[in-house]
Design a protein around this nucleic acid. Structure first.
Lengths: 185, 185, 185, 185
DNA sequence: TATGAATGAGCTTTCATTCAT
DNA sequence: TATGAATGAAAGCTCATTCAT
């Protein structure tokens, strides 16, 4: 729906609070009121964006898990997909992963559940690797979170250099650290 | 100054936009107008908070650099200091590292410069390690950012479990991945 | 028509401004647009309700006038009918008699004419009583209005005790005051 | 305070819902925000108006009670004061007595308590008359409400004739009905 | 004739900022 | 320097009304 697309763009570039529902409506080519026919509030619209973003990411991660790649291959692929997603949607990614924290109480459990589920998929990839003796016995939960944190590092680069992150440049470096960190030997 | 302290508390718990200058003034025990004698705007006050927070972190990192620890010991120490800072100020950390991005254009270069300098110190620690042959020839900049990303992972855990991050639990796991990732052999 | 019935219920329970055309449509089991096929606006719909309400009352008053009761009997009956109507429709009565005043300018003369006609019927009952020497030479217009005012008192009781007015309890007291007030000797 | 005065004028002429806080501010010669420094909401402002209006009325009624007039004289005086108040503030009176019903749930008990207290004073005047054998043993509560209802009748006249009520014209008629109604013999 | 998605004017309320004291 | 009442732009949200189907 074009409303979500416009909301993604607006939230991504300005953040939740600085975003203007009227601007989103204009961007989407609809009237303000129309947005409220589909979302009950600005917060609900934001959650729609979060849902969309996390949904896209989760879908990719699940596809990787059910692929025939080796554990290492899966992590490689996951990181690649992850970075590639962040590259294409880095501001959306910022919004999804950073700002939701301040809305937490109000959006109740949904955001938390969604992120947990998302982290869970990555955790599974790591556990699979541990079970097949490919990875050391690392703390899967923390290791999964660390992967997210690394993707985050990429967005920092973007902020510091004030331009779209160049993922390819960083992919190898991150992967090398991460894989050496968890792979056996 | 008590204004900064009050601002730290307010911004950390509510985020920039949801924070109320009046509430900060009350918390600080001064009148609203007084704040404007010291800071030209809410944004300026926020930058004061960012300055303070990053300043604290940077100071610690510089102390580490000038210590007599080994390169590995320095990284260990840096990570420890980092996690410990995040543990004690994790919401402030979230605010400093996440929300500032949306104020970027307006607060001009200062925030960016400050973060760059901060990352720079960590980068230096890594380069020192590389030069002393302790670390592999990793991309120092990316590796430094990865360290920040990992600290971030800790705050995610806090969000997901809805309680203060338990750093000790994660310190070992993260350190192991990171050191194996960058140390030679 | 079920639209009027739904509108009566909605306006009576919420008042004109707080009432929602969408809610009326839902209650009536039709689409919002359908209402506008029968009424040109919310205001027009409200006037439909006023018309219905005042129409019901007026019909009863006219029936009384053409009955064979004595002047005193007619007043007794009128008051009884009046209170009984208010008892069954006291919130509607409130809306009709109180809120319409603020729409006055816009709904032109109709409301005013309607009320005047309504008051007129009661006035006639009183004039009949005066002419037949049953009543003193009171100011018929004012006396008619006073009857309305007394019915009003009943709704006040309902408001103050926050429950449906108990008309029987008040009927005798009011009637006694009123009749003593206007009957000869 | 000039805000209350402006609010009285606005609410009286348009009713609660059709009134515009901005218009009240303009009328009062202050900025919109200023109103919210004194009243927490439009509803609270409305209650301020109700408080003021009922307070004025109650004060007069209390003064009458503590006067040295005879019971009949007190009722005469009360009705006179009442009608005179309504004459000077009839639209305010409309607002106070008619519209509050639809805000009832939200403004909780205050309005109800205030009106009860007001009715109570009149009830006392009547009970005093009954005790001193000046009045018949009427139902004091209902009789007090009837007095209010009569004052109401006066506002109807104003609505129907679309001009300020002419109280003097009606005072005698109403008083005659009412006194004959309750006085002994 | 009936529908209900789309509309957008208009409303209440907030809050960073100013400035007379 | 400190104050806090006053400000007014700005924002979220509602809802009577329209009109293509």
């Amino acid at each position: 729906m074009q409303i979500i697309e416009a909301a993604v763009a607006e939230f991504a570039s300005k953040g939740y609070f600085a975003s203007d529902v009227a601007a989103i409506a204009k961007k989407a080519g609809v009237a303000k009121g129309t947005i409220y026919n589909y979302f009950s509030s600005k917060e609900d619209l934001f959650m729609g964006v979060v849902r969309t973003g996390l949904g896209l990411l989760e879908e990719r991660m699940r596809a990787i898990r059910s692929s025939r790649l080796s554990p290492v291959g899966k992590i490689e692929r996951a990181l690649k997909e992850y970075l590639s997603f962040v590259e294409r949607n880095w501001t959306l990614y910022q919004v999804i992963t950073k700002e939701a924290i301040h809305l937490f109480a109000r959006v109740s459990e949904e955001y938390c559940t969604k992120v947990k589920s998302h982290v869970g998929v990555i955790e599974t990839l790591i556990n699979d690797g541990i079970n097949s003796k490919a990875f050391r016995k690392v703390d899967a939960r923390t290791s999964a979170l660390v992967l997210l944190g690394m993707a985050d590092a990429v967005t920092w680069e973007a902020v510091l250099s004030n331009r779209k992150p160049n993922v390819l440049k960083q992919h190898k470096a991150i992967l090398e650290i991460y894989l050496r960190g968890i792979v056996k030997q």
